[in-house]
Design a protein around this nucleic acid. Sequence first.
DNA 1: TTGCCATACCTTGAACCACAAGGTATAGTC
DNA 2: GACTATACCTTGTGGTTCAAGGTATGGCAA
Lengths: 122, 122
Amino acid sequence: MAPRDSNPSFMNGVPELLILTLLRSHEMYGYEIVQAIHDRTQQAIAIGEGVVYPVLHALEEQGALRSHRKTVAGRSRIYYSLTRPGARRLADLTANWTHITSAIQTLVTNYVIGGTHAQAIA
Amino acid sequence: MAPRDSNPSFMNGVPELLILTLLRSHEMYGYEIVQAIHDRTQQAIAIGEGVVYPVLHALEEQGALRSHRKTVAGRSRIYYSLTRPGARRLADLTANWTHITSAIQTLVTNYVIGGTHAQAIA
DNA sequence: TTGCCATACCTTGAACCACAAGGTATAGTC
DNA sequence: GACTATACCTTGTGGTTCAAGGTATGGCAA
């Protein structure tokens, strides 16, 4: 039921990380988050609604987010904001993300600078 | 049969990236790769044999790797090395990896430097 | 007024990847 | 003679993400 630990199932949880990150500065609603991720990453990353909404629900259920409805221009929106535990969770995820990606980056960019190392490719 | 593209299924393929990266400089065998990933990332990343071996088989089948048996000290090892297409594949994966992670990194580390932004956490 | 697009929410099914756990076999060590 | 390390491998399970669809309102254009 809970093989949560060990490896972070690798790079999983990126949507969660991005969503929490966006909510760090101010509250947002789901549809807005979907577009914000797309825009603020120069289209490098596109996370669909089918991913965002379930994550929002799960995070709220876990107490990491809090929500309230607001109607703007006849449109009903559900705004989400970080709770204290949510901020802690974001800090953990961010630290972990940085740790892992920098480890990978070090490996990947090691002595590839000028060489063609043709003997390895042969 | 082939919804391969769209998003890179996110951070998937990290094991593949790491394996190709290690094989960039010289040939290695599976068991060695498992430990090398563990060691060269300061234990930040641990990829099990259950992941490495299938990836090696798949990459060879796709023509990205080439293998040959060698017996060393009574131990039979299967050494893998990069082919030309494999090197191209590694270049693609690396570029993509860098692109995506830097986009995320930019979002994640934006104006978090000194502030507690307590108003967002409330 | 009818149709279409954008907004805004949501769920379902399938695909896929990585993992843990197991299984085989040999070499060296205690 | 048993245990650990080496070295290969496969299977089943589980968790994430995806694409595709489904509902409803507002605004705009034909």
